[in-house]
Design a protein around this nucleic acid. Structure first.
Lengths: 203, 203
DNA sequence: CCGCTCATGTAACAGGTTACATGATTTA
DNA sequence: TAAATCATGTAACCTGTTACATGAGCGG
């Protein structure tokens, strides 16, 4: 059960409500984990039941009431045990990779569209992460911050997110370039159009 | 259901048995997907039931018999539909990132050990991918291969795998360096040992 | 003779996704 | 007045993991 620990790690920074957690774990910002709101509410309930987080009701006017959660001592202990234990190998699972794997047998122009889309998303995320990093380190230089700043954990995971998205973008753009080049060369040879539909066989 | 399509994409290259597929989808080699053998046998059964792959029995002496599967026309159509449809955004889910996120609150030296381990694994994988790429392109240059080679799909996904693992390794090493530096500076200030256990508070 | 490779599964369970549900308030 | 934000969940379903199971040959 890894979501548990992701939630605990996210709450280390300070108290958050389920809703705020959900925003933090959203696709846009989640540089170290992703989860749907429903999952988070369920997990917070379980964590509270197990005494790993404690919630307190915050009454609000002109807004629905909310519950803020913080990590308990037991929760911190749990997180420490988790961190000390061996880490499972992680792996990629991305539909885009499957599609590119099949690139020689499928419609190229649909694929190009999706790769371009992904490249744009990756660029946007990279920019977001860059800003987040700047905010976290404030006016200090990166080296200075990494040496003496408090809370470098979130900074370091954000750096991984940034590198990942930059890699993503570069790869998507490279693949688009290759597919375009090949579509062009093929149509130049055969005299057909350059849409790249149904590559080798199959008329 | 994405495993389905990953299996179809993997079988495009040629006939494979469940066992061979399992090797291809293993952590060591899987540059675009990962799955356990049990899952693959189950998925192959379903795919055959649905007519997307066709299996044929191969009788062997001195080895258990096996079933080789190939993608049917219906399977190829399914894969084309999948490729044309919108791609779901993908996200990272890595226990190591959770641990680093919590780095400021947990035992540093256990974390360093795991990061070093992961860096070593990443380096090994990167080397493997580099060799695979060389094998795939044969004696051609990369540019030449990407322009005119047949089956660039697997090559391109392998390139993503390579970049990913290199990024992984670089990040792990960077984090190790930062954590070591901070542990050293802290012990220099406090006069305590340099194990880095239980960072700020808590005696 | 021990462990590895080949070869294929079943069954129980944990984890994650999709769809559904509600309702007030602020902003365009 | 329509849409977005705040705020929280339930229920059914799909997917993936863990544990268990079997059995023959080959290499050291």
């Amino acid at each position: 059960m890894a979501l548990r620990h992701a939630v605990l790690a996210a709450l280390l920074h300070g108290e958050l409500s389920g809703y705020e957690l959900a925003k933090a774990f959203d696709l846009g910002v989640a540089n170290f984990w992703y989860a749907r709101p429903q999952q988070l509410y369920a997990e917070l309930t379980r964590l509270e039941r197990d005494g790993l987080v404690a919630g307190r009701q915050v009454v609000q006017e002109s807004r629905p009431n909310k519950r803020l959660f913080r990590v308990t001592d037991a929760g911190l202990a749990e997180l420490r045990d988790f961190t000390s234990a061996a880490t499972k190998p992680s792996f990629v699972r991305d539909d885009l990779l499957v599609k590119v794997q099949a690139a020689d047998h499928v419609d190229t122009h649909a694929l190009i569209a999706q790769l371009s889309e992904r490249a744009a998303v990756a660029r946007a995320k990279a920019e977001l992460f860059t800003k987040l990093l700047r905010t976290m380190r404030g006016d200090r230089s990166e080296e200075e911050f990494l040496r003496h700043g408090d809370r470098v954990g979130p900074y370091l995971t954000c750096r991984r997110g940034l590198a990942f998205e930059e890699g993503n973008r570069a790869w998507c753009e490279e693949v688009v370039a290759v597919l375009r080049l090949r579509a062009g060369e093929r149509s130049a040879r055969t005299g057909s159009d350059a849409t790249g539909r149904r590559p080798p066989g199959r008329p």
